[in-house]
Computed example of a mutant assay.
Amino acid sequence: MRGEVLTFEVATGEGAIAGDDGVRYGFAASDLRGATSIERGQRVDFVPGADGRAQDIIAMRPAYVPASSGGAGSGQFDFGRVISRTFNAIKQNAAICFGASALLVGVPSMLTAFGGASFMTGAAESSSPSVVGGVVAYLVGIVLYLIGAFMLQGMVVKAAVGGFNGKRVTFGEAFGVGVQYFLPLLGLAIVAGIATGFAYILLIVPGVLLSIIWSVSAAALVMEKRGVFESLQRSRDLTRGYRWQVFGLLVIYVILSWIVGGAIAGLGVATGGSFTNGSPNLAFNLITQPLVNILSSVVASAGVASLYYELRTAKEGAGVDNLAGIFD
């Protein structure tokens, strides 16, 4: 969120910000990042708190100065702010994030779960129709899932960026962006996936490094209307100097995924399956697999948008003004 400082008293360390969303936010000197004081009328970027107070406040540069021209941003990458902004973006755009994810990711996930269970049941009972039907359902579900996942990326980026700049985004506007950038995002995923896959096969370290270097390429493609290879290069430039921080974020995401996966496996055992070769519980899979995919897709997409915004802030100036008009 962005806004303008209304008041700030050095003696008390308290102040107020008029957010671009029309809401007045209080703040304290301890909420400032990279400064101990701030002037009235200063444009700022901040994270709205649930209690109506502004947090993680950064003073914005007077104007955007490209890094290639010798300009520089605050140089400060705030690990906590990326996480906070990610979940704030999801909260502020919950209808778009979860509605789109349920439609574009959840439904295909149910189809793959049904196909997988039908295949395993047919194989166990030596039923050819069930095996064939299961394979077809599974493959169709995978195709629809891939299409939906790329559309969801564009939609969540649209909604998240709108929120960062104090703008409300409708489902229709977000859906239009998802459709518009589906093919470029698909091409980006193919190129990055093949390159990263080979890197993992050859040696795990290069694979992890490429994942970090290209972590915000999708956001760069959508936000800056770049081509596939331009977006990969842009992501490489933005992550340079902050790759350990990006690696830390990826580790947190992987650990959370493991925790969720372990919990789901435990529930599977409790409903009659096993960790290895137990019979599948169709009802259980039809609920849990789509739910996990919906949650992970939303968090991953919003996280990429938040990470991209933070990197732009650190390298090129806080809350860069040209982000506001990207989708106008």
Rank of each mutant, 00 (worst) to 15 (best):
Gly115Lys: 03
Ala113Arg: 00
Met120Val: 13
Asn88Cys: 03
Ile90Gln: 05
Leu146Ala: 15
Ala100Trp: 11
Lys91Ile: 02
Met151Asp: 07
Leu104Val: 06
Ile96Trp: 07
Leu146Asp: 08
Ser130Asp: 11
Ala149Phe: 11
Gly115Thr: 02
Asn88Ser: 14
Asn93Glu: 06
Ala100His: 11
Val132Leu: 05
Ala113Glu: 01
Ala113Val: 01
Gly116Ile: 03
Ala149Trp: 11
Gly99His: 05
Ser109Gln: 08
Gly106Glu: 12
Pro108Leu: 06
Met120His: 06
Met120Gly: 00
Ala123Pro: 02
Val136Ile: 13
Val136Glu: 08
Lys91Met: 12
Val143Leu: 15
Phe114Trp: 13
Leu139Gln: 03
Thr121Arg: 14
Phe150Gln: 14
Pro108Glu: 07
Gly133Arg: 04
Ala100Gln: 10
Leu104Ile: 08
Ala149Asp: 07
Val136Asp: 01
Ser126Trp: 06
Lys91Phe: 09
Gly133Gln: 00
Thr121Val: 15
Gly134Tyr: 00
Ser126Ile: 06
Val132Phe: 06
Ile90Thr: 07
Gly148Asn: 02
Leu139Arg: 00
Leu103Met: 10
Ala137Ser: 09
Gly115Asn: 02
Asn93Ile: 01
Ser101Leu: 04
Gly133Pro: 03
Thr112Ala: 07
Asn93Gly: 07
Gly133Ile: 05
Gln92Thr: 10
Ala95Leu: 09
Val107Leu: 12
Phe87Gly: 13
Ala124Cys: 02
Thr112Val: 14
Phe150Ile: 05
Phe98Asp: 04
Phe119Ala: 06
Ile147Thr: 09
Thr121Gln: 10
Gly134Ser: 09
Asn88Glu: 13
Leu146Asn: 10
Val136Pro: 00
Phe98Lys: 08
Tyr145Val: 05
Val131Lys: 06
Ala123Thr: 09
Lys91Ala: 14
Gly133Thr: 00
Asn88Ala: 13
Tyr145Arg: 03
Val136Met: 02
Ile147Ala: 14
Thr86Cys: 14
Leu144Lys: 02
Ala123His: 06
Ser128Phe: 14
Ala102His: 05
Ala94Trp: 15
Ser101Thr: 06
Leu111Ala: 13
Ala123Asp: 11
Phe98Cys: 04
Gly134Phe: 01
Leu104Tyr: 12
Gly141Ile: 08
Arg85His: 04
Leu103Val: 15
Ser130Gln: 05
Ile142Thr: 05
Ser127Leu: 05
Arg85Val: 10
Ala149Gly: 08
Met120Leu: 15
Leu146Tyr: 15
Val105Thr: 12
Gly106Asn: 06
Gly141Thr: 01
Ala149Lys: 10
Ser130Arg: 05
Gly148His: 08
Ser118Pro: 01
Phe150Val: 12
Met151Ile: 11
Arg85Glu: 12
Val135Trp: 04
